[in-house]
Design a protein around this nucleic acid. Structure first.
Lengths: 128, 128
DNA sequence: AGCCTGTTTCGACGGATGTCGATGCAGTTC
DNA sequence: GAACTGCATCGACATCCGTCGAAACAGGCT
């Protein structure tokens, strides 16, 4: 359960890829990236990710995550599964509790991909 | 048609907001951000955005955008509308053709939001 | 005016997604 | 081992989403 199910591109390279505003995304990359963005496309999942990342020690058990929301516990569990299968978080059971933490490389990949033209030094003053 | 329909947070501030891994996202911010990520959650829309941004002059007409895809032209038009309503691109008609361009501030907002812990100087060496 | 091209809108359809209550499974405690 | 807690899975349901063809709209050309 603690392995990410998705073959994430450059999972361990950190902020790697050139921004998508520099050159067109090829189709298979777009499919992989869309899967990750889809995991971020729900308010509850965004808040879950944020709660996990900003929690003491960088990880949180599910019991810390069900309180702040108006939805049922199975629904939270479902959203955590979506985040895990997208490669954004990982989890581990320790005794009674299951802990989740963010995989920073995945966030970094998306972040660098979205770098706007003005943010990429090479693009300043040289539209093309 | 050339105005963005969504009240985008800090649209003109560029990379502004503190990363979501620093402190929990509040509910209304999560809703707005999720709307933008949802626009990015489809492979075709990701490639469209990338095509537009990397196109000569930073803008592209719809006629440049229908060729590379296997879907019908109305479907492309639908995806462009989704991107526009999410505040990620804007468009303008010039004579026969309609041109689309990326709104860099929106991308920058999302990019900075996804900054991983290790990328934010203040977080280095201080787990919390 | 009439036609042609480029783009959007409409209506419909099938499949994906978010949600729930009920149930099952894993560890702990008595 | 029996009961209890924490979490995941299951099955069902309503809604949303991507896609299409057909039709409408906008502007240029003859």
């Amino acid at each position: 359960m603690s392995k990410s199910e998705l073959p994430v591109i450059d999972q361990d390279a950190g902020a790697c890829c050139s921004p998508m505003v520099r050159e067109p995304l090829d189709e298979s990359a777009a499919v992989d990236l869309a899967r990750m963005f889809k995991a971020l496309s729900d308010p509850i999942r965004l808040r879950l990710l944020s709660l996990i990342a900003s929690h003491q020690g960088g990880e949180a058990c599910v019991c810390d995550l069900t309180g702040p929301f108006d939805v049922s516990q199975p629904t939270i569990s479902h959203h955590l599964k979506v985040l895990r299968e997208a490669g954004l978080v990982d989890s581990e059971r320790r005794g009674t509790w299951v802990y989740y933490w963010v995989l920073p490389a995945a966030l970094a990949t998306l972040s660098s991909l979205l770098q706007a033209p003005a943010d990429t030094p090479a693009a300043v003053g040289g539209g093309r």
